[in-house]
């Protein structure tokens, strides 16, 4: 199991990387952390002609807060996110999510940009981007493009990026002070890809959701920001309300079948997650048992 031969170029700047991507287009692959790309190459599932290694573009690595915006460079590693005080303070959901990504040795190499550009529908960070209302910043031959997260993920391993573009950063609005969050995923083993996961953020007033964003993952070909969340906002949550929201959620899901679960199971688990999320965020244990049918 050895990768096919390829040419290798260590990008010296973003501009330099873009030049190569422009020349090679789909025949090139950007190497960031390599934690998804290299297994695929070792298995010869992909065989790029050119690897553009952006690993030394240190300007793409790091977390910064400016005003109400948290900017995370594409090369920021999962381990960096876990350790980042800025992330802990301003995007605590993200920190919880990162702890679920694979294993320590993977988190030391994998990057946020790589994860988003790879767009595995079962991975955690794309859903977080939806929940947190992120803007994805790409640079291409025509300059910089800002893409809303809900327009970025377009299918299994498919994004709005063109082969000539490089994801350089994400911007997240700083999480409001009074907001709260929930992250959970069902995975067969610690660090496995989720069967279904939920990254949620909410603000709560007088025992009701004033705002609720539910980013589900592994429930379709891309992460889903559930519109059914609106059914839970500004209402007193009763089991009946929850059932209605779950039913609306069910309509939004289009889960895939794989080794671990049938679509029916994914639908069921998404509803379990919804109930647990609502129950936990509202501190209402009465709502948490079972899946609202």
């Amino acid at each position: 199991m050895k990768a096919s031969a390829f040419a290798y170029a260590r990008a010296t700047s973003v501009a330099n990387a873009l030049e190569m991507l422009t020349t090679y287009g789909e025949r090139a692959k950007v190497l960031s952390g390599g934690q998804s790309l290299l297994p695929a190459m070792n298995l010869r599932l992909v065989a790029p002609e050119l690897i553009v290694d952006i690993g030394e573009l240190t300007e793409l690595r790091g977390v910064a807060v400016k005003g109400e915006v948290l900017t995370i460079g594409a090369l920021t590693r999962h381990a960096d996110l876990l350790k980042s005080r800025e992330v802990a303070a301003h995007a605590p959901l993200l920190k919880d999510a990162v702890a679920h990504i694979a294993h320590p040795a993977i988190r030391n190499r994998g990057t946020i940009g790589g994860s988003l550009a790879h767009a595995d529908p079962a991975s955690e960070l794309p859903a977080c981007m939806l929940t947190l209302g992120a803007t994805i910043i790409a640079r291409g031959p025509g300059g910089e493009r800002r893409i809303a997260a809900n327009e970025f993920f377009v299918g299994i391993y498919e994004t709005a990026l063109t082969p000539q573009e490089l994801l350089v950063a994400v911007e997240l609005p700083v999480t409001p002070k009074n907001s709260t969050h929930f992250f959970h995923e069902f995975a067969r083993r610690h660090g496995d890809y989720a069967i279904v996961g939920l990254a949620a953020q909410a603000s709560i007033r007088d025992g009701r959701f004033a705002d609720l964003r539910l980013g589900f993952f592994a429930v379709g070909d891309r992460p889903l920001l559930a519109e059914s969340a609106s059914k839970l906002v500004d209402v007193a949550i009763t089991p009946a309300v929850l059932i209605e929201a779950a039913s609306a959620l069910d309509d939004e899901l289009d889960p895939l079948e794989d080794q671990q679960a049938t679509p029916a199971m994914r639908r069921h688990l998404a509803k379990v997650l919804l109930a647990r999320c609502v129950s936990l965020l509202l501190a209402r244990p009465d709502l948490g048992a079972g899946a609202p049918a």
Partner: peptide
């Protein structure tokens, strides 16, 4: 698993050329 610059990594998921 090996250490690269003090961090553990999977050495099958890193190219030798990346260790410059």
């Amino acid at each position: 698993t090996v250490r690269v610059n003090g961090d553990i990594v999977r050495s099958c998921l890193m190219l030798a050329v990346q260790t410059q």
